[in-house]
Design a protein around this nucleic acid. Structure first.
Length: 755
DNA sequence: GACGTTGTCCTTTTT
DNA sequence: GGACAACGTC
């Protein structure tokens, strides 16, 4: 088991009890170390499988860990606490719902549900949503919770914040009344449960002697405190992470947790995994050089035994369109050389960039997959179906009530809902409980809806989960509604898929055949090494369990089937993945690094880490591409080269288009390089500019070499070269202050000043 | 209550 | 450029 590991890996796996920090560089075998560590603890009888808690950030990582540990040793992983922070906290809260102050059938709001709940709250309380936009309120509440703060703990140093805190208080009351918890609440509740309830805390502290944490650099402050609380004085925390790959500060991750952990717990027990098994030397050295520009790193230098490999190919194109087209052409030749399409990835900083690339791929009939689209449980029709299911489980869930009270349409309009909300607010009850107080036709429509919900609840009593789901998608009217819709066929298919998902879930969770609405009480008969009973009774009905599952695991983010497809995704989405060939696109200031991040040093450093992640995805071949002009937000921009390009030493780069700007003399067919005396131009351009000309007509303007022009951003300049014609026409312009640029004349707005 | 028109805002994302 | 929300009209 451990003899296939390299020295630092083996050292990490076999560390004696005690806290430890493993700094695992990209491609250094991080997951392998984590899973082997668990297997080793079990095999050497230092722990039973049930004495281990392993926590990850994504369901995918948790699943992979489970799969790999089962592959190493044949143990029963059921009952093991391996999961995401949110999943484990949910489990904790389900088991101790009373002590946590929650109803048994509490439901989980995903980000969109929470947003809707906040909008509803602002409206019900007549709060000005111009001054307090729901987005900002949501961020305020979530940030507070992630710092472990209840409304009373947040500092109110001005009237604006005081009001925010009031809204936070109202929001908490609303959630409590409705029996729902949002994502950060799962963590905060679980944390409070452990910290306030000594018997429960003691129980879990005695049980979990080994806590393993994946992607430790992504933990937020509350997660850090949760871990240290759970560990208590006795457990060993084995934290694995890479500070250079911390790219989630924007959602509360605190890289500082790594340094804190080293200082406060892991003193001395720090192991670095620096041997990389993924990429060739040029790629790794480029990554190392780039990331060395960051300050305050824990320090790490990747190396490989694989040799230098190829340099990074760099390409500069006049437009984003040309950039995309060039990538498509290059992919064609990569495929012609025998590479698989699914081993080629195109990465971009922001999703908006994918459109042009998709267009180019589509026009060339190259199959591709875009990651990061809508997920199964986030689809409109699925959310609607889930809302009905939630109302059956808990009629006081107002978020679900509002979502489907008039869907499919049944004559309940905004005014009716408003008056219902008024009633609910006046009497401090849920919407469902206020129906009787709404008079007239509106009231009877509402009453009818209420009846149909309770009829569905009645009719499905005692039914197993899949049958229940099937009944509800039919009797809610969703199927009938989408049948009338011309584009409803896909939605109906998805609704049927929901029944399948319920079937699979019921089998996996051993709920098959059990009535979906009744709580399953099961007590694990196993005991841990100290003779403690392991788990208190789990209190959850198959239906409530399925609904948590739907909220906690929104389904695969992966696009359509089709193995042989080029992979398109953001750099964030690429973390943890690897490909033979990688294109990093849009290497431009404002885009990568993103303009919103460059003002703060910490923002810029995160962008640099993002670039580091991007570079280290490539095994063999890496491309940087950039465009001199780009359509963004409906405007053409003329970005400068990304500073990150100059942070990678020249020796690792191979420019396929000229690094220096080209200029044409206007005669002959051979381009002449500006500054031709410099020997540093490494290569002839593989994309030769079109035949040079002395003048071109673009629109109503006739451009000539030697003309003086002025440009909105670059200022005054002189045309020193022209090529192409019509839409392809480009000019090389020597600007007085902005250097030499190649601009597409059909796109750039130029005024002729003289000549 | 349904539909068409104008106006605003644009990173990154998992749970 | 495009998604989505808010407004105005039938």
């Amino acid at each position: 088991m451990i003899d296939k590991l390299n020295d630092p890996q083996r050292e990490a796996v076999t560390l004696p009890p005690g806290h430890a920090l493993v700094l695992a560089g990209a491609g250094s075998g991080k997951t392998r170390v984590l899973t082997t560590r668990m297997a080793w603890l079990i095999q050497t009888r230092q722990s039973s499988p049930l004495g281990i808690l392993a926590v990850t950030f994504t369901n995918k990582a948790a699943r992979e860990m489970l799969a790999r540990i089962s592959a190493i040793m044949p143990i029963d992983t059921r009952g093991m606490w391996i999961g995401t922070f949110h999943g484990l906290c949910n489990r904790l809260l389900r088991a101790h719902f009373r002590d946590a102050g929650l109803p048994q059938a509490f439901q989980i709001l995903d980000t969109a549900d929470q947003f809707a709940a906040i909008k509803r709250l602002l409206k019900a309380n007549n709060i000005d949503d111009e001054k307090y936009p729901p987005r900002d309120v949501q961020r305020f509440i979530n940030c507070a919770k992630e710092e472990g703060q209840r409304p009373g703990d947040v500092e109110a140093y001005d009237s604006f914040r005081r009001r925010m805190i009031e809204i936070y208080t109202l929001y908490e009351a609303q959630c409590q009344r409705e029996g729902v918890v949002d994502f950060p609440e799962l963590l905060l509740r679980a944390f409070e449960l452990l910290s306030r309830n000594e018997p429960i805390r003691n129980h879990y502290q005695r049980r979990f002697r080994h806590i393993l944490v994946d992607e430790f650099q992504d933990t937020n402050n509350l997660q850090y405190r949760w871990l240290t609380l759970l560990a208590g004085d006795g457990a060993s925390v084995f934290a694995v992470g890479d500070d250079d790959q911390s790219i989630y500060a924007f959602r509360g991750a605190n890289v500082g947790n790594m340094a804190d952990f080293e200082r406060d717990f892991a003193r001395g027990a720090v192991i670095r995994l620096e041997q990389n098994y993924r990429s060739y030397g040029h790629i790794l050295d480029a990554a190392n050089a780039l990331i060395s520009h960051n300050t305050g790193r824990l320090g790490k230098n990747l190396w490989t035994e694989q040799g230098a490999g190829e340099q990074i190919r760099v390409v500069e194109q006049p437009t984003d369109f040309a950039e995309a087209q060039w990538i498509v052409d290059e992919i064609r030749s990569l495929v012609a050389e025998g590479r698989s399409r699914h081993e080629i990835a195109i990465l971009y900083r922001s999703n908006a960039q994918s459109r042009v690339i998709e267009h180019a791929l589509f026009s060339s009939a190259i199959p591709y997959k875009v990651y990061g689209g809508l997920r199964f449980f986030e689809r409109q029709e699925i959310k609607h179906a889930l809302a009905y299911l939630r109302l059956i489980s808990n009629p006081d869930d107002d978020t679900s009530w509002v979502r489907v009270v008039n869907f499919p349409p049944r004559g309940i309009g905004a005014r009716t809902i408003e008056s219902l909300m008024d009633q609910a607010r006046t009497y401090d009850t849920s919407l469902a409980a206020s129906v009787a107080r709404v008079p007239g036709k509106a009231g009877s429509n509402l009453a009818q809806f209420l009846v149909s919900i309770s009829q569905m609840a009645e009719a499905t009593r005692g039914l197993p989960l899949p049958e229940l789901v099937e009944h509800v998608i039919e009797h809610s009217g969703l199927i009938a509604h989408y049948k009338l819709d011309k584009e409803g066929a896909d939605r109906i298919e998805n609704l049927n898929e929901l029944v399948t998902a319920a079937t699979v879930f019921a089998i996996e969770e051993h709920f098959d055949g059990l009535p979906a609405g009744e709580s399953v009480q099961w007590v694990s008969s196993a005991t841990d090494s100290m003779g403690d009973s392991l788990t208190p009774a789990e209190n959850i009905s198959p239906l409530a369990s399925f609904l948590s599952h739907a909220a906690l695991e929104a389904g695969d983010n992966q696009a359509q089937a089709g193995q042989q497809a080029v992979q398109l995704m953001t750099v964030h989405a690429a973390k943890g993945l690897e490909f033979d060939a990688v294109f990093i696109t849009g290497m431009e200031e404002g885009l990568f690094p993103h303009e919103n991040s460059v003002l703060e040093p910490s923002g810029l450093e995160e962008e640099r880490r993002l670039m580091y992640v991007a570079i280290t995805r490539a095994r063999e071949r890496l491309y940087f591409s950039l465009a001199q002009s780009r359509m963004l937000h409906g405007q053409t921009r003329y970005p400068m080269r990304s500073r990150f390009l100059s942070e990678v030493p020249d020796q690792h780069l191979k420019w396929l288009t000229p690094k220096q700007q080209v200029a044409f003399d206007g005669h002959g067919s051979e381009p002449r390089w500006a500054g031709a005396s410099r020997a540093s131009i490494p290569n002839r351009p593989s994309v030769a500019p079109r035949s040079p000309t002395t003048g071109v007509l673009v629109g109503s303007q006739h451009f000539r070499i030697g003309q003086g022009v002025s440009h909105g951003r670059f200022g005054e300049g002189t045309i020193i070269g022209l090529s192409g014609s019509g839409l392809e026409a480009q000019a090389q312009i020597q600007f007085r202050d902005a250097g030499t640029k190649t601009l597409a004349l059909g796109i750039a707005k130029l005024d002729i000043t003289h000549g």
